[in-house]
Simulated assay, not measured.
Amino acid sequence: MALKIGDQVPDLSLKDETGKEFNFRNADNKALVVYFYPKNFTPGCTREACGFRDSYEDFRELGAEVIGVSSDSKESHSKFKIKHQLPFLLLSDFNKKARKAFGVRSNLLGLLPGRETFVFNKAGNLIFRFNSLNSSIHIEEAFIALRKSLQE
């Protein structure tokens, strides 16, 4: 079942690129920008990751942590993170339990894992959900939603 605006961030844990467990509910009173992407080292996914990297400090200034999620292995995540100097966590969802918990659907007739971004406020409630194959607009949409929520 897909997450709806107002829903709590799922209570689940995934391993990051170092093998350390990360639980989405233990965000230390930070807003979360969680983006799901198909695969490390592909052109669109690299562009998206580097876009979040380049805007990372802007998100941090708003009290948010950025987290990337794909089904790639922790070893692949580690290489991807180092190569592109990514300052945020990359979580391995090899069994797709996070995709199921968040309700991320596949694209292109089920051939590609979905590309979707979720923004949660500091209380852990979903305030914005964005689905688009266009990787370059996820960063701006997430930033606008987060900034807007802080002004309310």
Rank of each mutant, 00 (worst) to 15 (best):
S73T: 15
K83P: 00
M1K: 11
H84F: 15
N23H: 12
K74G: 01
R129L: 05
L62R: 07
S106P: 01
I67C: 06
K30Y: 03
E140F: 05
N121F: 04
F120V: 09
L126T: 06
D28G: 02
G51Y: 06
D28P: 00
F52I: 02
E152C: 03
N125K: 15
E48Q: 15
D11T: 10
L90M: 15
E61Q: 15
V69P: 02
M1E: 10
G6D: 14
R47I: 11
Q151N: 14
G110K: 11
R99M: 14
K30L: 06
G51N: 09
L111C: 00
L126W: 04
Y35I: 01
L86M: 10
R105T: 13
N134V: 14
H77N: 08
N107P: 00
H84M: 06
L109M: 13
Q85Y: 07
F118M: 07
N23V: 03
G68T: 08
K4Y: 08
S73A: 05
K39W: 04
K122I: 11
A2Q: 14
E75P: 00
N29R: 11
K96F: 14
D58G: 07
F22C: 04
V9Y: 02
E65H: 08
P10A: 10
R53Y: 08
V34Y: 04
A49S: 12
E116D: 07
N125T: 10
I127P: 02
F22L: 12
V69F: 07
L90W: 00
V33I: 14
Q151T: 15
G6L: 05
N125C: 09
S70E: 04
K81T: 15
K39V: 02
S76V: 02
T46I: 05
K15S: 13
A123S: 14
P87N: 12
T18A: 05
E21S: 12
F128A: 12
K30S: 13
P43E: 10
S135H: 12
N134Y: 03
G63W: 10
I139P: 00
Q8R: 14
F120G: 05
N134R: 14
D11K: 13
F102P: 01
F22D: 00
S78P: 00
D93G: 09
T18Q: 14
C45L: 06
N134D: 13
G63L: 11
R60E: 15
L86D: 06
Y37G: 05
N125I: 01
L86S: 10
K97L: 05
T18P: 02
F94W: 09
F24H: 03
D16E: 06
N95E: 12
S73Y: 02
N40F: 00
S106T: 14
V33A: 08
L3D: 09
Y37R: 09
R147W: 05
L126C: 12
L109W: 14
A31Y: 01
E65S: 12
S73I: 02
V104Y: 06
T18I: 02
V69L: 11
F94R: 05
G63I: 06
G51F: 06
N125M: 03
D72W: 00
F88Y: 15
